[in-house]
Amino acid sequence: MIETLVLIIMALALLSFLQRFIPWAFYSRIGNGKEVEKIFDMLAISAFTALFVYNIQKLDIETLVSLAAAFPVILKTRNMGLTVMAAMVVSLVYIFL
């Protein structure tokens, strides 16, 4: 059992490394123009949106209020750290009240 788990972890480690390394190492620039830059920009927006949705563990009023509280913080400050702190503080206040 332990040997199998060790092998699985080794396989996952190798896979995770190769899937990060190969596309990056063998990417040849497909163009320099502003168009490619914009397409990558769109990729980032699309990925961040999906990651935002998928990282919400449970959708309840506490989560919504905490994220809603973080929204004006990022709009005003553009500071990621403060945004995360705001969401967590509101969530913790919610728990302890």
Binding site: I45, T49, F52, N55, A70, A86
Partner: peptide
């Protein structure tokens, strides 16, 4: 999620 909101 708050981090990705802050990045998005």
């Amino acid at each position: 999620p708050a981090l990705f909101l802050g990045l998005l």
